[in-house]
Each structure stands twice: as structure tokens, then as C-alpha cells.
Amino acid sequence: MSAILPPTDELDVLVRQVAGVDVLYPAGSIVATVLTATIEAVAHRLPLAPKVVMEQRADGVKVTAKIGISAAWHSGDVSRRVHDAIAAQLRQSGNPPVAQIEVIVARIG
């Protein structure tokens, strides 16, 4: 059983800054993402739901980031940089041990 940790856009900002990352997609469930976006749209606010998802598992924190990259870059290089940036951030912020950092390249080009 895992719990979604309180949302923070800190990791979103970090991932977007990684060279080669073109787009950051919501890593959470489609239903939750669309629901949040719809509520925010009705309220005439910009969507606030973070796209990088962080979960607390029994063995530590699991972070998932789903990205789109430009065709000029290498998927392996970009995803490694995203992983390393998240890992460094988690170490710096004193989060619990990392169980897994998942980076999904969902679109190229």
C-alpha cells in the first residue's frame, strides 16, 4: 500500500529545467489529472496539480516523472539527467530513503 504525498511543484520545476525535456506530462492517473484540470478551469485558475508524482511506500519514496523530449536529444541521456536531478533534490531535502525513481519518456520529437 502506498500513499500519495502532499503535492509540491518543486520537482516539476526541477524536471522542466533538465536539458532535453520538452514537455512534462502528468504522471498520475488520467482521471485525477483531468478532474483537477477541469475544477481549476471552472474556477478560472491555472491548473495547480503537480505533474511529478511522489508516493510514500513501505520501502521509501517513489517518484514518477513522465516527459516528452526533443528528437535531437537521446532518450537515455535525458532520462538519466532527470533521474539524477530528482535523486539529488531528494537527498538535499532530507526525504526518506528512495525506493524508486521512475522516468518515463512518453513522447519523442
Binding site: 537515455g76 532520462s79 533521474h83 525506493a99 524508486q100 521512475e102 512518453a106 519523442i108
Partner: peptide, 16 residues
């Protein structure tokens, strides 16, 4: 996608 860290799970989707 290959990464030396045991906590890393890096993938590219078949669709991409």
C-alpha cells in the same frame, strides 16, 4: 533504458 542505480527505473514507451 540503462541506468546503474538500483533505484532507477527509466523507460521509453513503445508508443514514443
Amino acid at each position: 533504458l540503462i541506468h546503474p542505480s538500483p533505484t532507477a527505473r527509466l523507460v521509453v514507451t513503445e508508443g514514443a
